[in-house]
Computed example of a mutant assay.
Amino acid sequence: MAQCDKLEQLQKEKEQKRILIHTSAREKLLKASDQETFGQAWDFIKENFGELYAVKENVTSLRQAILQLAVMGKLVPQDPNDPPASELLKEIETEKQRLIKNHGLKTKAEIYIAQHEEYIDKPKGWSFYRLGNLTKFIDYRGKTPKKIKSGIPLITAKNVRFGFIDREPYEYVSEEEYHSWMTRGFPRLGDLLFTTEAPLGNIAVVDINERFALAQRVICFQLHKSDMNLYLRLLIMSDIFQEQLINSATGMTAKGIKASKLKEIPIPLPPLPEQHRIVAKVEALMALFDRLEKQIEQQTAKQTQLLESMMAEF
């Protein structure tokens, strides 16, 4: 038993060292001021990948590091042939003005962004633009609609998770309630759902084909340029944007953000082709991390099975 206790302690110390070394390597990667330092930090992670990522905590941490690198312009190279983001913003502004004139769009924000508001050193070709100028907000604040046992699905803040929509718990409203409640607009496939509190900052792409009602504490973003949705989802999930949310939020026990504050947060935008490259790279890496976590779980399961077999012999 003394030897078993010693072995257990050694294993715990080894896992803690893995986590500490990975944390240090991750910080060097994120804070690298030039390409050479960045390359050295990345090479260290690659060379020690098998040892560092034998624990799920490090894999989770690396996921967030990848998101942060993506929205800082460090994950994929910039292409000088890409039209700059300023050209993309002209298209977005044209569509915004059309919606204001023809459909009474009310969601808009200040145009001017001071240099101190830019929370990353944007790469060449990138621009900042406030969230309220990129998208229409469909916001159902106020009382909660009356729920029934079956009918038209109701999507609440509990369904909007960090990166995806979970249909559980299943809640419903009547046909009559749906028509009287949904007067500010209807979510569409590809729109983004964002939770304003309890929890703050969850984001997901709408992948529901059927009609559904939207509850309070969830804002639907209908982007003026719809094919930016996957990049914006990644940005909002990143630590660097979540920090902006916390800085703009209010409340002591449960942090929340007002729509008026949310729409003024600046968004770092790459050229549209680069956005698509970033999304493709992140999705490929996240699939790799999924497989890695599964392998870790299987290895843990094998250890558990071995222990159970040993104990069965006594």
Rank of each mutant, 00 (worst) to 15 (best):
P84N: 03
M286R: 03
I155M: 06
A259N: 12
D139Y: 10
T183P: 00
A312V: 11
S238E: 04
F164C: 05
I152V: 14
P270R: 00
M310G: 13
K149P: 07
S309H: 08
W181G: 00
F162C: 05
I138R: 00
I219G: 00
P123S: 08
R277C: 03
A213H: 00
Q305L: 15
A287F: 05
E57T: 15
Q40K: 14
A254M: 14
T107E: 07
L285H: 06
N102T: 11
E264G: 05
I246S: 11
E51I: 08
Q275H: 06
D239W: 06
I45C: 01
I111G: 10
T300W: 05
L7H: 08
R26L: 13
S238H: 02
T144K: 04
C220E: 00
V205P: 05
P77E: 12
D290C: 08
G201I: 03
I92K: 04
E47F: 03
T183N: 05
F186A: 09
P84S: 05
K31N: 13
A85F: 06
G73M: 05
M310N: 12
Q35G: 06
Y129S: 14
F44C: 04
K147E: 15
P169T: 01
T196Q: 03
A249Q: 05
L29K: 00
E274N: 09
K6F: 07
M1W: 12
A2S: 10
Q275A: 01
I152A: 04
R18V: 04
D166S: 13
M72Q: 15
P271L: 04
H116T: 12
P80I: 07
F49G: 06
E176P: 05
M311C: 06
E264V: 04
F38T: 01
E51H: 13
L262W: 00
L88D: 03
Y170S: 14
I240P: 00
M182R: 02
A85K: 03
V173E: 03
L269I: 15
I111M: 10
L89A: 11
K74G: 01
S61D: 14
K255A: 10
K281I: 05
I265P: 01
T304H: 11
